[in-house]
Design a binder for these strands. Structure first.
Lengths: 117, 117
DNA sequence: ACCCTACATATCGACACCCTATATATAAGA
DNA sequence: TCTTATATATAGGGTGTCGATATGTAGGGT
């Protein structure tokens, strides 16, 4: 089995990347909007800082998972990011991998105490 | 609601810590054994390097989540770690938090494609 | 006219963490 | 004796997040 070993760093980084790729599924959007949407869609749980988000977008673009195109909205410049085919494959593949890791992690951790509200 | 925001770094670090605390539930053991057991229990998925494991143990001990006691087995010295009451609380509490974060993360990511093969 | 906020992107330095490598020391087996 | 396994520890390098700072446009308040 080609079971790759778990990498904590990569796992954490991967979560951020998946959140970005996921919100780009429905429609392409610019970085600032991605930050707003991810925060809204997660009810404020997942929140990107600007110093975190933009480097991630550059990384994803460098890896060919998203493609950025400059746009001018009046005098304001935006870089609209769209999911590539590779990005779509990466999203589904890595989501499955995260799911598997989490499942196997939860098997090791203590089951929830079935406590009332 | 006291909803703390998600912290990727802390989440990744927390996974390592929970794996250590979890394997100490059944019985107290020394660091080297913890590494072996976690790897075995996870079928090789979660594997600690020595340079990662020992600092984690020191951190957990500093936080009062485990208590270490030096032991001599022949001429060989071992530091036996035991879960403290605080460690037990931390384990159940953080496990619940991880479960919740993962649940909310999975709601955002694409559902598994039911199929092919 | 001026200021402040929101929009929009970008980068740098500080900090934290993991990982590789190295160090020390005992015990068992070739 | 040499190597491997047991057992712990730390320093150095690499990478990523985060806060701060920078640049520039647009709009509302005073």
């Amino acid at each position: 089995m080609g079971e790759k070993e778990f990498d904590v760093q990569g796992f954490a980084r991967g979560i951020h990347e998946l959140l970005v790729l996921s919100t780009l599924q429905a429609e392409k959007k610019h970085g600032y909007q991605i930050g707003i949407d991810v925060e809204a869609e997660s009810d404020g749980l997942f929140c990107f800082r600007h110093g975190t988000l933009y480097p991630i977008l550059h990384r994803l673009e460098g890896d060919g998972l998203v493609r950025g195109a400059w746009s001018r909205d009046g005098g304001r410049r935006k870089k609209i990011y769209a999911l590539t085919a590779a990005g779509r494959r990466h999203l589904t593949g890595e989501t499955g991998r995260v799911q598997e890791i989490v499942t196997r992690l939860m098997r090791l951790l203590p089951p929830p105490t079935e406590a009332p509200a």
